[in-house]
Design a protein around this nucleic acid. Structure first.
Length: 576
DNA sequence: ATTAGGG
DNA sequence: CCCTAAT
C-alpha cells in the first residue's frame, strides 16, 4: 500500500499544495528521509519531535535553494505579519561547511512539513542548540562528505544512511544518537549505534499517523498496519538486526533500553518511546511489561474520560500553553504564542495543530427538525392532544413559533382509539380516564411539536434545541398500554408488544418499551415501602398511578423473582 | 433482528 | 434515550 518514498512524497506534496498553495512546493525535490533526518536532528525543534503526518519530502538542498530560502527567511523575518507562517522559519541554517556544498539535504520539504505540523519554534536550551556548531559541522561533514555522494541522491535510503554513519567515530555516533533520540547513550557498539540511528531516522520519517489518535500525549491505536508496512518497506531487517545487535551487547545496558519490547508493545508506542527522543526513559521500567492491546471497551472508556478532560486542552498542546496569550489586534482578539527566534522572543498567532472537523450534526439535529421521517403518523394520544393543546395554547408556555393547528385527525385515530379501549383492561381503563387529563397536559408540552412537522420549521432554534433530541415523554395511556402488553405477551417480548400493542406509535421502539418497563419496574418497587407516597414523584414528571405500578410489580414478580429481588434492593437504596 | 444492560 | 454486546 504505502510502498515507496515517492508515494509519501506525493502525498505530502499534495498536502502541501493544498495547504499552502504552490508557492512553496515549486522547489520541491525528491530527497531522502534519512539525510533529512540527520540534518533535522542537528536542529531540535522542541522538546518533542513532531509526529509526521506525512512523509517528509526533503529535497536536494542546492545552493540556490539555500540562498533563496535564507533570503526568503530574512525578508519574512522583517514582517510581523508574515510571522503568521513563523513555523516555517524554525530552521536557521547552521553555519557549516555544508552550506557551500551542493549536497546539503534540502529543508524545503522540511519547512513545509513544519508548516503542516505547525510545530512551535523552539530552541531548547537543554537540547542541541544552535551554537553547538561543532556538532553540526561534525555531522554535516559526514552527511555531506564527498565520499558518500549518494547520500544526497534521490532514492537514497537506509543503506546510504549507513554509509554516512560509517565515517563517524563511536563518539560521533553517540552524539548523533543523542541528537537523534534526545538522550545519551553509552553504547559502544558502532554497528548498533548506526542501526539505531538509521532506523530512528527512517522510521521517524515514514511513520504515518493516519488513523492515529493522540491521547494524553501518547499515540494510540491505528498505526499498526501502516507501521508494519513501513517496516517492511524500509527497514525491517534493520529493526531485526538492531535487536540482534542489542542482544549481542549485553554489557551495554543502554543498547537494550526501550528495545526488548519493540514487537510486544504497540508499534506506535515503541516509536514514541524510542524515537521521539524526549520520552520518559525512566519509565522504561514500564516497558519491561508486556503491554496488551487495549480492548475496544477500554479505549472507549479511556477516550471518554480523557477526552472530556482534554477537549479544551488538546486544541492547544500543553507545551504551547505556557506561551499562549491573547492579544487584541484591530479589534479582534488573537491568540498568540511566544516563539524564540534567533535569540529574541516574538509572538506569532497561534495555529492549532489539530484540525477542527466540522461538527457532525448541525444544530438542527438538536431539535427534531431533521427527522421529517421521524414521525409520519399522528398517534391517537397526540391527535387527541392536538385539540386540547389548541385550547391550552395560551396557558401552557408554548413554543411561540408553533402554530397550534388542529390538523385533520387521521382516520386511524378513531380506529386506534377504539382499539385502545378494547385492549385496555377494565381497571386500567378507569385509571386511564382519571389520569388522562394531567397526563395530556404534561405530554402536550413534549409531544406537540412533533405533531406538526410542517410547522416545526418555524420553531426558533434555541427553544427546540433545549429539548433533548428524540425525547418523548411517556403518556399514561402509553404506560398502561405497555403494562397491558407485558401482561399479555410477557416480559421481554418487546418486539411483539411493539408490533401488536404499539403499532400506531411509530416513535416507540421496542427498546423504548423495554427501557420504559425498566423504569416502571424501578418505580414500582421504589414505591412499595411507602404506599402513602402513592404516585407522587419527586419532580414534576408524570405521576404513575399506584394501580399501574402494582400491576407492574405483579408482572415482574411473576416473571423473574431473582430480578425482582435486585430491583427491590436497588430501588430501595436509591430511594432512601 | 432482538434483547439485556450500562451510560 | 443512546449505545453496545450478546444471542
Amino acid at each position: 500500500m504505502f510502498g515507496t518514498v515517492e508515494d509519501y512524497g506525493e502525498m505530502f506534496q499534495d498536502n502541501v499544495v493544498q495547504t499552502r498553495g504552490a508557492s512553496l512546493s515549486s522547489a520541491n525535490q525528491i530527497g531522502d528521509p534519512v539525510v533529512y533526518k540527520l540534518v533535522r536532528s542537528f536542529v531540535p525543534l522542541g522538546d518533542k519531535f513532531p509526529y509526521p503526518t506525512r512523509l517528509l519530502n526533503p529535497g536536494l538542498f542546492q545552493s540556490e535553494t539555500v540562498e533563496a530560502y535564507t533570503e526568503n527567511l530574512n525578508s519574512r523575518l522583517e514582517s510581523k505579519e508574515e510571522l503568521m507562517y513563523g513555523s516555517q522559519m524554525f530552521f536557521t541554517l547552521p553555519d557549516t561547511n555544508c552550506q557551500n556544498s551542493n549536497q546539503l539535504p534540502g529543508n524545503e520539504g522540511l519547512v513545509q512539513s513544519e508548516v503542516l505540523l505547525q510545530e512551535p519554534v523552539r530552541f531548547p536550551s537543554n537540547g542541541c542548540t544552535m551554537d553547538q556548531s561543532m556538532d553540526v559541522s561534525q555531522y554535516s561533514n559526514a552527511t555531506c562528505s564527498p565520499k558518500v555522494p549518494s547520500a544526497s541522491k534521490p532514492g537514497f535510503s537506509r543503506d546510504t544512511g549507513d554509509k554516512c554513519l560509517d565515517n563517524l567515530s563511536i563518539k560521533s555516533l553517540q552524539e548523533t544518537f543523542r541528537a537523534t533520540f534526545g538522550r545519551e547513550t553509552t553504547c559502544k557498539d558502532k554497528r548498533w549505534l548506526k542501526r539505531r540511528i538509521t532506523m530512528g531516522l527512517i522510521n521517524s520519517c515514514v511513520i504515518p499517523t493516519t488513523g492515529l489518535t493522540v491521547n494524553d500525549n501518547k499515540l494510540i491505536g491505528g498505526g499498526q498496519d501502516n507501521y508494519n508496512d513501513t517496516i517492511d518497506a524500509y527497514s525491517k531487517d534493520t529493526v531485526d538486526e538492531g535487536r540482534a545487535n542489542c542482544n549481542d551487547t549485553p554489557s551495554s545496558p543502554d543498547c537494550r533500553k526501550g528495545h526488548s519490547n519493540d514487537f510486544q508493545r504497540s508499534p506506535v508506542e515503541s516509536f514514541v518511546d524510542q524515537y521521539s527522543g524526549n520520552e520518559d526513559f525512566e519509565g522504561e521500567l514500564r516497558s519491561a511489561k508486556r503491554v496488551r492491546k487495549p480492548t475496544r471497551r477500554f479505549i472507549e472508556e479511556i477516550s471518554k474520560v480523557d477526552g472530556k478532560q482534554q477537549v479544551n486542552e488538546s486544541l492547544i498542546p500543553l507545551k504551547d500553553q505556557r506561551s499562549i496569550s491573547a492579544v487584541s489586534s484591530g479589534g479582534r482578539v488573537v491568540v498568540t504564542r511566544m516563539v524564540s527566534l534567533a535569540g529574541s522572543r516574538i509572538q506569532v498567532p497561534y495555529v492549532s495543530h489539530v484540525r477542527r472537523s466540522r461538527p457532525r450534526e448541525n444544530i438542527m439535529a438538536l431539535g427534531e427538525f431533521h427527522s421529517s421521517s421521524w414521525e409520519v403518523k399522528t398517534t391517537p394520544e397526540e391527535s387527541d392532544l392536538t385539540l386540547r393543546q389548541y385550547q391550552l395554547n395560551n396557558d401552557v408556555n408554548r413554543v411561540s413559533g408553533v402554530k397550534s393547528v388542529a390538523g385533520p385527525v387521521p382516520k386511524e385515530l378513531a380506529i386506534n382509539h377504539q382499539s385502545d379501549k378494547d385492549h385496555s383492561k377494565p381497571n386500567l381503563s378507569d385509571v386511564n380516564q382519571d389520569i388522562m387529563e394531567p397526563e395530556h397536559i404534561d405530554s402536550s408540552g413534549n409531544s406537540s411539536d412533533d405533531n406538526h412537522n410542517t410547522n416545526r420549521v418555524d420553531l426558533p432554534i434555541m427553544q427546540s434545541a433545549i429539548r433533548r433530541k428524540h425525547h418523548r415523554a411517556w403518556t399514561l395511556s402509553e404506560v398502561i398500554k405497555l403494562v397491558e402488553g407485558v401482561s399479555r405477551y410477557g416480559v421481554g417480548k418487546w418486539s411483539e408488544i411493539k408490533r401488536l400493542s404499539f403499532s400506531s406509535y411509530a416513535y416507540r421502539t421496542s427498546v423504548d418499551l423495554k427501557d420504559k418497563w425498566r423504569n416502571l419496574l424501578r418505580a414500582s418497587f421504589a414505591q412499595t415501602p411507602s404506599k402513602r407516597m402513592g404516585s407522587l414523584k419527586k419532580h414534576g414528571s408524570m405521576a404513575i398511578p399506584s394501580q399501574v405500578l402494582l400491576q407492574v410489580r405483579e408482572l415482574a414478580q411473576k416473571q423473574s423473582p431473582a430480578k425482582k429481588a435486585r430491583m427491590v434492593k436497588n430501588s430501595r437504596n436509591g430511594f432512601l
